[in-house]
Design a binder for these strands. Structure first.
Ligand SMILES: [Mn+2]
Ligand SMILES: [Mn+2]
Ligand SMILES: [Zn+2]
Ligand SMILES: [Zn+2]
Lengths: 148, 148
DNA sequence: AAAAATAAAATAAAAATTATTTTTTGTCAA
DNA sequence: TTGACAAAAAATAATTTTTATTTTATTTTT
């Protein structure tokens, strides 16, 4: 779930556990994600790390995120049709996309209580996501048509 | 909602109503969408129409779909992180993505009953979508690891 | 310690999307 | 009514995002 007290070693252990190598690029990506609630895109992660890791490529960011998502350490969010976003918190939770500033927020709605069946019309339902859209507090406050 | 008895005229009327011109490309796209429950991507629509409309470009498909979505005649589905999909049915309804064949299905779950608040933690919620993931009937039946 | 096998990073290529330019269509005054 | 003008839409060109291939690094086996 990417919440490490003693970061370095714990991250290495996590990677080891899943048979993944602890490379500098991966460590950097995991560190960036650590406690990050902005649901960043590949591009955003890439841009933030590129200065410190000049050889880094976007493909590596994809590889790392997909590897971590595959083993369940992070999750992918498809709330935003424009780009793939990632979340270091793999627990199912509800997301909100602001139509104005395009930011994605966590929403504290209990998904466990949601009456979603495990089976419906021949479909075998394994997981689900609830995406909400509207205006965030920040944007609602300045009601002047700005995009922020 | 793109359900026309007398297709041609009704489509033209719809477009006129929203101040959009009834061009051959748009008519073709609307006709293709008409009653289509496959939730096609831009690429799929483009490929299907290209033979009959050799000058057609993917950009025009985007333009048309975005214009129709903007006025509420169709809706965009972001269940699939790989590509944008479109649905001629603009009414809120639940979607299911099969993890194996990647097909998107409509699901008959009453969204009206879903306890989703209009306001939560300062966020002004205008709409929401519920996406389910798993295995479709078709894929579950042939349980041999094939991707179909 | 060297060779082979595996994994990951980077580069190159492809696919998806957006921005710009060109063409078409509709409006309105001559 | 027809020819300029404006607006809208289509197509092309460019960019961005994602995937496939190649190169480099790490681990395992001999
Ligand atoms: Mn989240
Ligand atoms: Mn649908
Ligand atoms: Zn906002
Ligand atoms: Zn299927």
């Amino acid at each position: 779930m990417l919440l490490y007290k003693d970061e370095g070693t714990a991250m290495i252990d996590t990677l080891k556990k899943f048979g993944l190598r602890a490379t500098p690029q991966r460590m950097a990506i995991m560190q960036l994600l650590q406690g990050n609630t902005s649901h960043p895109s590949v591009e955003e992660i890439y841009h933030e790390l590129k200065p410190k890791y000049p050889s880094l490529s976007a493909a590596t960011v994809y590889n790392t995120l997909e590897a971590l998502a595959k083993v369940g350490e992070i999750q992918e969010i498809s709330i935003d049709p424009q780009r793939r976003r990632f979340d270091p918190n793999p627990r199912p939770h509800c997301h909100f996309l602001c139509n104005r500033c395009q930011r994605v927020y966590d929403l504290d709605i209990a998904l466990e209580d949601l009456p979603v069946p495990h089976q419906a019309g021949g479909f075998n339902i394994q997981s689900f996501s609830l995406y909400l859209y509207g205006e965030c507090e920040h944007c609602s406050s300045k009601d002047d048509g700005t995009k922020i």
